[in-house]
Design a protein around this nucleic acid. Structure first.
Lengths: 347, 347
DNA sequence: AAGCATAATTGGAACGTTCCAATACTGTCA
DNA sequence: TGACAGTATTGGAACGTTCCAATTATGCTT
């Protein structure tokens, strides 16, 4: 049993043929006679041969390892979990396997991961960059010809392909929705200005306010980690502002859920006493109580698209960076409540 | 730039030394002079050398690829997401990378994944077997000497290491808790009898009822997928039973959340009108409304333990299967409500 | 039956590393 | 100075595959 592993030579011997022929059938070449092919396949089955992809990759020019790397920030956030599942689906059915790791928003760990994946010869990488990532962090990778898709979070200045949702459009719609309900003091909660998504999303928010003739009050734009805990923190600070907001657009759903938690802890009912809208439309947004009004981006679909984009780039090795923006759609549920009386006063 | 990759020979030439010496410093050998080591490291940096782990693995006896495989059922379930994060933590800091994929409860896809990972030469596997997995499905893997840790879901008859939570103990405590609140009609919701966890968890439930002198009513044990959707389905059927249950122990938290959804859809408030307790204590159990009473298993810790167990087995290649059971703890929150009047009648 | 095109097969070299045994350097001591 | 013990370094061979050019087998045409 501990007889060193079965190699292509063993099965060549068993099938009475040369290793080259075996290699040909492994690659599905059409120029090997039906009968020999069968004999070889039988031997493969009998001897319990397992293909050594490492050896193959080593020999092959262009090192097509059939491995792709995926780095996200936080698998625990179901946005990223679903994104990963979407990627997994298309990648699996293309015969690839994925290294999947989270860098926990830590650029150093991110670099280590990239390095490690590179040593293993990944043939492509999908990454949601951690806060504070520089475009130059991917330079080595890119110049070695490995296709990279930057997903979800923009990375200004990168030559890699990017797959972003229409962030500004989304928050603009969300803000307009709150405005139409009569809100005038609307906060923006979560995120930090060193991540590009933050800029894009606050951009849409500012635009909508400006268009409505409302002065943006920077006191209402509150930085906090983009997690549930960050949401709790943010709403706490928002409610401490002298002239309290009555509604909030949140950086993402995780923050929005935290905001709801924080409101309840203060005996305020989200949807009734304070309107909140999220961003992402993660799976539990629909079933949470109150159901979350949010900007839907279909994370799983986004994962599928990212993977497709990467595979396309791997196969046609003309690695021309492509920038794709995916559409979003405001989904109104309960957490934004109904129109408030401010509006009636205006009518 | 497209100058084929930089190899150990290139840096040997640059440092005026032989490839063997370079290899030695790559492996951190102590028997190379300080000065030469520095010269070599400098060359490595200057030429932008990246280690080819595939080639190394090919040569090395025992094929220590520094890759481990992880297969879970559903990354979207935060129990598994956290488990994966736990694994990731220890695996990363041991210098490994992980293939992480979900098999979506599909044994065929699971086999494909195992095959694919094997071709890539994983040096170990952590798996939460899909429903209907046979112990024999891992035979090939095991006999090729690759350590396997079966986590979360038991697989009777396997020779691999197993890491299970104290399932029966947990559901027994959960059921006793509901009994102590006065419930007498207690359902068990979710899961199927072809998964070992189901047997173990219903076992604890049955024991508790029996000990309390209550006849187990099989009508109240309801099979359904172990997902949020499955929970919705299960509670629907439970409430259709002639003599309605007043409480339920659920297979896991995902099911429990689904049960809460289903109750609300029928204008019943979980915690007040119907008591529900989950299993897992996923991260949102604490913050959900109502907060979920559940059996805490610390999924992330379990992931860490699984990874540690696997690494131990990889390093000491005496692959003696080890069976570890991790303790659980009932966490009483809101979803199980307070004592109901049935109890007062009895008092 | 010879010639020829095509189909099927094959032997080595190569991929980038590690391992092993062997060699080349040190310096020390008689 | 020559022998000796370390210490540092080194050339191949090997890992399991694919690629290439070359060979052999097959069938068809005249």
């Amino acid at each position: 049993m501990a007889e060193g592993r079965v190699t292509v030579i063993d099965i060549a011997r068993a099938a009475g043929v040369s290793k080259s022929t075996v290699s040909l059938v492994l690659q599905g070449s059409s120029s090997v006679k039906e009968e020999t092919r069968n004999r070889i396949n039988a031997a493969i089955r009998d001897l319990g041969y397992v293909y050594n992809r490492g050896a193959a990759t080593l020999r092959q020019t262009g090192s097509r390892s059939k491995i792709i790397g995926v780095i996200v920030n936080d698998l625990t956030n179901s946005f990223f979990a679903e994104l990963a599942v979407g990627i997994d689906m298309v990648v699996q059915s293309a015969g690839y396997v994925q290294f999947l790791s989270s860098c926990a928003e830590n650029p150093d760990r991110q670099q280590e991961l990239i390095g490690s994946m590179r040593e293993h010869g990944i043939s492509g990488l999908i990454i949601c960059p951690a806060r504070g990532t520089q475009a130059s962090d991917f330079k080595a990778l890119e110049s070695s010809g490995i296709p990279v898709v930057v997903a979800v979070r923009n990375l200004p200045g990168t030559k890699a392909s990017t797959l972003m949702s229409a962030n500004a459009v989304g928050t603009r719609a969300a803000t307009q929705h709150l405005l139409s309900l009569g809100h005038r003091r609307i906060a923006f909660l979560g995120g930090f200005s060193d991540m590009a998504v933050f800029d894009e999303r606050t951009g849409g928010y500012r635009d909508a306010l400006r268009e409505a003739g409302i002065q943006v009050d920077d006191e209402l734009v509150i930085n906090a980690p983009s997690s549930r805990a960050g949401g709790v923190e943010a709403i706490g600070r928002a409610l401490a502002v002298a002239e309290r907001p009555t509604a909030a657009v949140c950086l993402n759903d995780a923050v929005a859920f935290g905001v709801c938690d924080g409101l309840r802890a203060r005996r305020l009912e989200p949807g009734a006493d304070f309107a909140v809208v999220g961003f992402d439309d993660v799976i539990e947004a629909k079933t949470a109580v109150p159901a979350l009004t949010t900007v839907s981006v279909d994370p799983q679909g986004m994962g599928r698209r990212a993977a497709t984009l990467l595979l396309k780039q791997i196969n046609s090795n003309s690695s021309e960076g492509e920038a794709v923006t995916t559409a979003v759609r405001l989904v109104v549920r309960e957490s934004s409540g109904k129109a408030i009386n401010v509006r009636q006063e205006m009518a």
